[in-house]
């Protein structure tokens, strides 16, 4: 049970990352690898602030702001300096590696027993239940873990709702259109480059927020923690789409969150069954590869027959 709660919590925290990837990959069609660096940046800023005894809320928001700035830089590299989107992401991610080490001052910052969301969850749980463990459906679970789960759920739900609201405002619909058909929305008076910069900033802010929460939950920030996170986010978004489809904005956002949680659960189960943790990234990458390629392979014979059907009437006439 503790394992399940842990997997759910991490899945929820990483669903903020999935939402970030939804914005960069689905709205703007950019595989933005900056998030590998910004998730760590969020964790680093948050951890350092917490160690200095800053209020955890401020520390978390500080991480978020760091991600915004990172996304801003990537966006400006693309829009102002016309650097290819993949390359801009790689440049900023690489630069962020050094920045993160500078922020932390070393490659790992532990957060043991410093005041954070987790210690708040623990204290609140003790006060509410009066003991460190409660029984849930017959299982004994730590109140700390339970409240961490509920807290993440609350934060993720609030973030997803805020995004849903944003993408239906005038600015938000224009941003979606800027990704969908830049030529069209430019003709309607939108500065597409500016909107792309804002979108990437928002995406990286969310990734950093995810990193800030993750650091508090696992009790440390680490210079390596962002490695391969883009692919993780992609996997979540793809699983989400197979769960809910992408027919509407609400379903797509919900799908990204659900996909992240489900993916984390699957991974937890696989690890429990003896999957070598070293293989995790390999398998994630293979999964995304398969998800990208399989639909095309499956479509191919169909497309062939459609083309044949389209030609048939021409031949008659």
């Amino acid at each position: 049970m503790t394992l399940l709660i842990g997997a759910l919590t991490i899945g929820l925290i990483l669903s903020l990352l999935a939402l970030a990837i939804y914005i960069s990959y689905r709205v703007f069609d950019i595989a933005d690898i900056t998030v590998d660096g910004s998730i760590t940046l969020g964790a680093a800023i948050c951890a350092v602030l917490i160690v200095r005894n800053t209020n955890p809320v401020l520390a978390t928001l500080g991480g978020f702001a760091g991600g915004l700035a990172a996304g801003l830089v990537t966006g400006i590299l693309q829009a102002r300096f016309r650097i290819n989107s993949l390359l801009s992401g790689i440049l900023v991610m690489t630069a962020l590696y050094s920045v993160n080490l500078h922020v932390m001052g070393k490659s790992n910052v532990p957060l043991l027993s410093t005041r954070s969301f987790i210690t708040w969850a623990e204290q609140f749980g003790l006060w509410w239940f009066g003991r460190p463990e409660v029984s849930l459906l017959g299982w004994l679970v730590g109140v700390r873990d339970l409240l961490a789960l509920l807290g993440s759920l609350g934060i993720v739900a609030a973030t997803a709702l805020a995004l849903y609201w944003f993408f239906r405002t005038e600015v938000g619909t224009a941003m979606r259109a800027a990704g969908d058909n830049p030529q069209m929305i430019r003709a309607l008076g939108v500065n597409v480059e500016l909107y792309r910069i804002l979108g990437l900033a928002l995406a990286n802010g969310l990734a950093a927020l995810s990193g800030a929460l993750l650091a508090q939950y696992q009790g440390f920030a680490d210079a390596q923690m962002g490695l391969g996170m883009v692919v993780w986010g992609l996997a979540s978004v793809i699983i989400g789409e197979s769960l809910t489809g992408s027919r509407s904005l609400g379903l797509a956002l919900y799908g990204a969150v659900a996909g992240s949680v489900l993916f984390r659960l699957l991974v937890a189960i696989a690890l429990r069954w003896g999957l070598n943790p070293n293989d995790l990234k390999l398998i994630t990458a293979l999964f995304v590869f398969a998800a990208l390629v399989l639909p095309q392979l499956l479509k191919m014979p169909k497309r062939g027959s459609a083309a044949a059907a389209a030609q048939a009437p021409n031949q008659k006439s």
């Binding site: 405002t169 005038e170 600015v171 008076g189 939108v190």
Partner: peptide
Amino acid sequence: GLRRGLGWA
């Protein structure tokens, strides 16, 4: 060509 804000689209 008008300013876009945070009102419902």
